[in-house]
Design a binder for these strands. Sequence first.
DNA 1: TCAGTAATGATAGTAAAACTATCATTTAAT
DNA 2: ATTAAATGATAGTTTTACTATCATTACTGA
Lengths: 228, 228
Amino acid sequence: MDLKISIRLNEKLFLRDPESSDLGQRIVKYGIEMIHKLGFESFTFKKLGEEIHTTEASIYRYFENKHRLLLYIITWYWSYLEYQVVFNINNLTDADEKIRRVIDLLTHELDDSLGQIDFNHKALYEIVISESSKAYLSKEVDNNNSDMLFKPYKDLCNRIAVLFQEFNSTYAYPHSLASTIIEAAHFQHFFARHLPRLTDINGQLPDQTIQSFLEHLVFATLSQKERV
Amino acid sequence: MDLKISIRLNEKLFLRDPESSDLGQRIVKYGIEMIHKLGFESFTFKKLGEEIHTTEASIYRYFENKHRLLLYIITWYWSYLEYQVVFNINNLTDADEKIRRVIDLLTHELDDSLGQIDFNHKALYEIVISESSKAYLSKEVDNNNSDMLFKPYKDLCNRIAVLFQEFNSTYAYPHSLASTIIEAAHFQHFFARHLPRLTDINGQLPDQTIQSFLEHLVFATLSQKERV
DNA sequence: TCAGTAATGATAGTAAAACTATCATTTAAT
DNA sequence: ATTAAATGATAGTTTTACTATCATTACTGA
């Protein structure tokens, strides 16, 4: 099997489609590497240009600024994750099972069994952990939102919320629970690595522990009989 | 009653203690206003200097850079919140009641019944919502952590974790649950305002809705009999 | 094959951000 | 009254975050 799944992203994310050229693809690929290595704040188009032997000006022809490049990368991740969710829960009948699969996907690095991805998975997942909230925690959030740039995140969130409703149709906060576990999956990883006292992960495998924590939390919450 | 509670913050947060002078206090007070107004990325010491009729150089005598000022502000918030938690659960015997009080504190703007705070509460709370994660989501997190700059956050988290253990001593993830609800309280507010589709808050009072969501989540999670 | 156009490279330049340094002046403390 | 500390005034540096211009290469299609 060698079909190429390409994710079509909102055109407002870029000035010139980076998928359309070799340079564009290098910008994204090595952009991921460098944001991962330097952190978003220290990352600049100048440095990226040097790395891939092009100029700052050329990169600006693809992305308005580095924040847009981050948004592009994170949006790609959300979209790909939604695709993985749909793909992975397909054929499962049990809502319980579907939710477990989703939590598994959320807490582990993207897997690329189909060989779609030609960049560093691990770096991408770590960018998601450390930088993804910066994609929306900005003063431009409302403008970006009007441009539908967060649609992939909302779609992912909604997809998960629907599963929660399937499991328990009376639960009142399916979307909030969905966004909470998406975010929690990321920052529990961050805390596990940098501020472990904010977690209960002591040396064990962080991925598994976070997965168990979230599974317990989600099923307890969805199973709770009306009480509050 | 007119006792002044002053929170002693880690000296590594600043170069000169801003509490110790009029200029220092203005830096913090109007720093909060301006970060709120402009957002952290667009905020600069130059602009703050103009606002309070001093110079960039003078502000640099207090804080190494704007990130340290943010850390100072957020750290102050965590410390004050821990103080509020201790103060508010004092004399409560029921773990259930204590947890409810904590969730109430987490989801609402700081209250200042004792008249301690001489700056804009609302602006501070909104900074916490929009900017607090930037305090630790940086490449300096490990160095900052060695300098104990996150101790107030850890103390707050631990304080809440202890209550969870009091409620259910067999629960395996009290710290992760604590950090999760602290963060969730903030970004559910952010989402409610900017990306409401990521929540189930539709026009109702966001604070109350988030409070109910978190209460349900916490008690369901802590009440769940061993199962997973 | 040749003209045209799209993409990139090379270079230069600007405005603002993020500092650092110096020295004069005001203020407060002994 | 003398001294030290804090602030103000000013100036300067490096880096970031862009924008502009023009030359070169590469591919396109008539």
